[in-house]
């Protein structure tokens, strides 16, 4: 079943067409990747999906409901959570608090509950805290709950960001270059984590990724973007042998060389 569907999405910055007529869909329960050279418009496409940018043209539907015109917080409330290419944690909050912020939509406590510390409030906070701790463990973090997020090493920050996104109980998880800057061992762990997220929690994953080992190792479907357009899509095997993809990545000359070798 199609979970996310976009038709002819266009996003321009002045004269630059950063996303051009993107028609794209993600089936429920899958792990899907978008790849493409730097500046291809992948992040801009994510930002258009999540309401951070307003696309000039096109349709976006999620669970059959249009996302066009929704603010980012409203998009999040429909069940889409995300991470950012350049990690965006709340640096001066603790790790646990970062994850609790991720639960914003689910928590129902109001101002008066907060001020009078009603039973409802206490119950909800305790449960939330417990869930946050569980999520920390789930992404493989230990003993850092009270650390300020900015004091964690890079890999740890990536994990918190994922835990924070998971805290929202999303249906669809968008990951923007989640393994950038990781060494092969860490990438390996990350792949396992993504699989678990899909297998245990049934969360659909759409990710932008550069590391071909990660992409080929985990994706069930891949779309390739270049200059804002989708130039190819298919299974990892299909993408690996696609002429246009090789050109986009390596330039025309290299593509010819590649062909001759093959």
């Amino acid at each position: 079943m199609t979970l996310l569907n976009t038709t002819n999405v266009v996003k321009r910055f002045g004269g630059l067409v950063a996303v051009n007529k993107m028609t794209f869909s993600v089936d429920e329960g899958r792990i899907v990747s978008i790849i493409g050279p730097n500046g291809a418009g992948k992040t801009t496409f994510f930002n258009s999906l999540t309401g951070i940018y307003k696309p000039e043209e096109g349709q976006i539907t999620f669970k059959g409901q249009s996302l066009i015109g929704l603010r980012p917080d409203q998009v999040a409330a429909t069940g889409i959570a995300r991470t950012f290419q350049n990690i965006r944690l709340f640096g001066s909050m603790t790790v646990i608090e970062n994850i609790l912020v991720g639960m914003h939509i689910q928590l129902k406590q109001g101002g008066l509950d907060t001020i009078f510390r009603t039973r409802k409030f206490n119950q909800e906070e305790n449960d939330a805290e417990q869930r946050a701790k569980d999520l920390m463990e789930y992404v493989g973090l230990k003993n850092v709950g009270n650390e300020l997020a900015r004091n964690l090493p890079y890999g740890g920050q990536r994990r918190i960001e994922i835990a924070r996104a998971l805290a929202a109980n999303p249906t669809l998880l968008l990951l923007d270059e989640p393994t950038a800057g990781m060494n092969p061992n860490e990438s390996e762990d990350a792949i396992k984590l993504f699989r678990r997220i899909r297998d245990d929690k049934g969360i659909t994953i759409l990710m932008i990724e550069h590391d071909m080992r990660v992409v080929m190792g985990i994706s069930e479907h891949i779309s390739v973007m270049d200059y804002g357009e989708k130039i190819a899509e298919g299974s990892p095997a299909e993408i690996r042998s696609n002429q246009r993809v090789i050109e986009a990545y390596l330039g025309r000359g290299a593509a010819v060389a590649h062909e001759q070798k093959a």
Binding site: T50, I52, R71, P72, D73, A76, A77, A81, R82, F84, R88, L89, F90, G91, S92, M93, E97, L100, V101, G102, M103, H104, I105, L107, Q109, G111, T114, F121, E125, R164, A168
Partner: peptide, 21 residues
């Protein structure tokens, strides 16, 4: 509380905060 954490989140990074709903 949820409210206070949301305030701090906004102070730290508006874009990330709004993306968290």
């Amino acid at each position: 509380s949820r409210i206070g954490r949301a305030w701090t989140a906004i102070r730290e990074d508006e874009t990330a905060a709004i993306a968290m709903g």
